[in-house]
Amino acid sequence: MARASRKKSQAVTIDAVARHAGVSAMTVSNVLNNVKPVREATRQAVLEAVRELNYTPNLAAKSLASAEMTRVGLLLGRDEFSFVSSVLGGAVEATTDLGAQLLIRRVGIADRVAVAEAVESLVKSGVHALVLPGLFAGFLHEELKGEGLGVPVVSPSPGLSIEGVHCVRICDETAAREMTEHLIALGHRRIGFIRAEKLHLVHWSRFSGFAAAHERAGLEVDASLVATSALSFSHGLEAARKLLDRPDRPTAIFASNDDTAGAVVAMAHKLGLRVPENVSVAGFDDSPLAVRMLPLLTTVRQPVADIARRATELAIQLARTPGERPPATVEIVPHKIIERETSAPPSSFARSN
């Protein structure tokens, strides 16, 4: 009995899993922590060894090996729009799966001083890496150059690349161009655009794509059909009214995110207009809102939660290799144009009014 008891008490080690799978312990760690790509056959061999040996990663030992639990700081805006909840969901999944701790600060997105103070607070609290969504990384781009804040910084969905910052994003300019080309292909020639405020890097990237599509089609952007708005439903309502409550309103409106696109649909209904019969509407992100509104929203699919998850995984990887400070990288992930019910060819009514 004693012999059986001793055998049962012997914990399976990562080295045992490595020997069983015929790989190195580092490869086992990479597979379990999902920090570096490995061949699919190797990954399957490691997972099979884990199952056969009933191996459970020892998070306590992992913490001791790195002297303490890996802590990742995340900055979020107080504004309750879809992007924020998606970023939070992706970051929570990554830290949960990889055994890291997530420290969160929330600030008003337009308060640059508060943003800087929140980041400083996170660094002083002992985080090993920071995840700064694009707005905040853009605010602090000067501080992030060179040695920066002293910890690795990763930005999910910044809209543009940022010097000194690891970025995980789609190509916003290309995505905006393709959505605008989709509307042009439907026959729209007077297309309104709701542009993000200048504090967002997408203020430039998404408008650049909108303008590029017009140039390719031999069209000019009508500046009077471009409205600037905070990326929220409430602010989007006023921008939508400016574009729709005019005798020469556009036949289509492309908004810089789904929240403002939802505001366009709501304002159109308030003004007695039908979507898409009187005006087509397109958004950006493919947030949960896009399929919870009626009609269903045509939009650019940006996998925000997946991007945030990958950015957080990268932050954890950088935090756990403090001796290595690789140059800032940019990972471009795919986007997709999602055509739903809010876009259609302009009707004769829309063209003549």
Rank of each mutant, 00 (worst) to 15 (best):
R3I: 13
S5I: 12
S5T: 11
K7G: 13
K7E: 14
A11P: 15
V12H: 14
I14W: 12
I14H: 13
H20A: 09
A25Q: 14
N34A: 03
V35S: 10
K36P: 07
E40P: 07
T42K: 07
V46Q: 05
L47H: 01
E48M: 09
L53F: 12
Y55D: 05
Y55L: 07
K62A: 15
L75V: 12
L76H: 05
S86D: 08
V87T: 08
G90T: 08
G90D: 03
A94F: 07
R105M: 10
R106A: 10
R112L: 14
A114K: 10
V115K: 10
A116D: 15
E117C: 03
V119K: 00
E120N: 08
G126T: 07
A129I: 11
L130T: 00
L132K: 01
L132V: 04
P133I: 14
L135D: 05
L140N: 00
L144T: 00
L144P: 00
G148D: 00
P152N: 04
S155F: 02
S157F: 13
L160M: 15
I162C: 04
V165M: 07
C167Q: 06
V168F: 00
R169I: 11
C171E: 09
C171T: 04
T174K: 04
T174C: 02
A175T: 01
A176K: 11
A185M: 07
H188V: 10
A196W: 09
K198A: 08
K198T: 08
L199I: 08
H200P: 13
L201W: 02
V202W: 06
H203E: 14
W204M: 01
R206Y: 11
F207S: 12
G209S: 07
F210M: 11
A211N: 13
A217M: 08
G218D: 08
E220R: 14
A230I: 03
H235F: 11
G236F: 01
R246Y: 04
A252S: 05
A255R: 03
V264K: 02
A266L: 12
K270R: 14
K270N: 11
L273V: 03
R274Y: 10
V279K: 03
A282C: 13
F284A: 09
D286T: 03
P288Y: 06
L289Q: 10
A305K: 05
D306S: 03
I307A: 06
R309I: 06
L314E: 15
A319N: 07
T321P: 02
T321C: 05
A328R: 00
T329A: 15
I332K: 04
V333K: 01
I337A: 02
R340Y: 12
A350M: 04
S352W: 15
N353D: 14
